[in-house]
Structures are given as structure tokens and as C-alpha cells.
Amino acid sequence: MVSLTATVTGKRQTQRPAGRSIGRPGLAWALPATIFFALFAVVPLVLVAVLSFTTWSGLGSPEYAGFDTWARVFQDPVMIKSLWLSVLLTVLGVVVQTPLSILLGVWAAGPQRNRAVLSAIFFVPLLLSATAVSVLWRALLDPNFGVPSQARWLFGDGNLFGTQTAAIGVLVFVSTWQFTPFHALIYQGATRAIPQVLYQAAQIDGAGTVRQFFHITLPQLRNSIITSMILMIVGGLTTFDTVLILTQGGPGTDTTISAYYMYDKAFKGFDFGAGAAVALMLVVVATVISLVVVRVSGYDKMAGTKEGL
């Protein structure tokens, strides 16, 4: 903080135009945060690339291994399967959560008072941590003491963690339960920002509620849909706690998605090189998909939804 005093300007320098340079902080003010962030986020990101070319068991020092680690990772069928499972879970998550959260958000944006009260309850899952949500549902869906054991007419043998289909269903359901309120809040805020003029004009033209929804609300929500989808994709590809607590990647490796595979390789199998390689792949895939979504949707051109108003 020594340099701070240096940037303090002299008193009443009237020859300089006020507001141009006086009272403007030097770059030194940004330094502590930048260094801290670089140290704990940027350096690890670089290190993950470096470590993916080494073998390291967690003890001693990593040893350079060239492309051996990458070759080993790509020869593991479980890894290839985990990539597909990640994509599958992400796609299912987006497909299930997007319509649900749009409907819920648009509904909650309505002016009625009962909606405010109900919304307060609707958004309670947001208050629970991912860990708490997973532990709660693991207990509720317990094969012996949970709801499925009480409703065998619906759940068959009651073990929702015994088959791949059921386990994936559980994972999609639990993340939907947990994250839909969050995305609904995005849509609620965006819906409230839609100019009322549009609806009034549509009503004069005789458009009903459904047509208004498809021709005004949905197009106006475009930017929010893209934001929310990017968050879902990145979140879906990096889902970890839910899998660790609910299925532990099982049955067998049937729900071992990439993020869990990475954790399992590194911290259970002590193959940190392989873990780093998978981690790097996840970052690249998530970034590429986000960029593609941004490009395809034209989001980067910042097309406004308020043109002509």
C-alpha cells in the first residue's frame, strides 16, 4: 500500500481540469486483488495443463511423462464413457430445466399477491447447499427406508440406484429440483423487464395469453435463455457433489461422469496426472460449448430486444 500515497494528488491543482485525473485511483489500487486472484485461480489453471503431462501420486514431486498420461487417459474406456455420460446428463438437464424454469419464472413474475407468497416457498431449494440437497434426496430415496420402499407400485423393487436408467433419472431429477428455482429467478427478473406496451398492443390486436407468451414473452426472454443455458451447460459438465453423494458413480461406472472420474482418478486412485488431463478437457469443452452457444445465438452482437420501442 506504499504506492497509494504516491497517487494522492496535491491540493487544489486548479490548472488541471477537474474530474479528469484528480481523484482517479492508480492501478496500484487493483494490485492486491489481481495478485491474489492470479495466485489462486490463474496459476492453478496453468498448472493443470502442466500436470497433465506428468505422473504424480500426490507424494514427492510430479515427473515429466510427455503424452503418456494423455494416451493412458484416452485408452481408458471408462473415461470415454464418462464424457458421453457428462454430455447426456447436461443435455437432459437443459431439456428438462429450461421449459420448467421459464414457465415458473414467467408465472412468478405475475402481479398477484398470492404469487409472492408462493414464490417464497418455491425458491426454498436455493437455500440448501448442493451437499444438503443431495444428502436429503439420498435419504428420501433410500432403497430400504425411503419413499420408493413405500410406493412399490410406482418404483418397482424400490432401488433407484440399481440400474443406469433409474440412477440417471435420479441425478437429473435432483439437479432439476435444486437448480430450477435459480433459473426461474433469472426469468422472473427478465419477464418483469418486458415493456407492458407490447402486451397492451397485443391485446388490442386480440392476441390471447398463449399467443402473447409465444410471440412476446419468449422472444423477449432470448438473452436470458442464452445466459441461463450457458450456466446450465457449464454447471452440468462440472456436476460433482450430486454424483459423489447420490450414486458414487454407480451402479458400476454407469453414472461416472467426467468430473467424478477426475476426482476418482486423482484423489482415490492417486493418479493426479490423469486427473489433471480430464480437468483440462472439461475446461476446454465447457468453454468451447459456451462460445458456440454465444456465437450461434448472436448473443455476442448484443442484439437488443427493445428495438423500435
Binding site: A30, T34, F37, A38, V48, F267, F272, A279, L280
Partner: peptide
């Protein structure tokens, strides 16, 4: 440049850095 660094940081998932974080 500093601002761009932090915008970039938005895209780094914590899951991606746990291995090097453990190392550091």
C-alpha cells in the same frame, strides 16, 4: 486488462483446478 482477467475468471470452474490446488 485487469477487468478482462476477472471476466475470464468467471469461466473457470472450481472443479477444473482441484488437482493443481491440492498441489499448491
Amino acid at each position: 486488462g485487469v477487468f478482462r482477467l476477472f471476466l475470464l475468471g468467471l469461466a473457470i470452474p472450481a472443479q477444473a483446478v482441484i488437482v493443481p490446488m491440492f498441489y499448491v
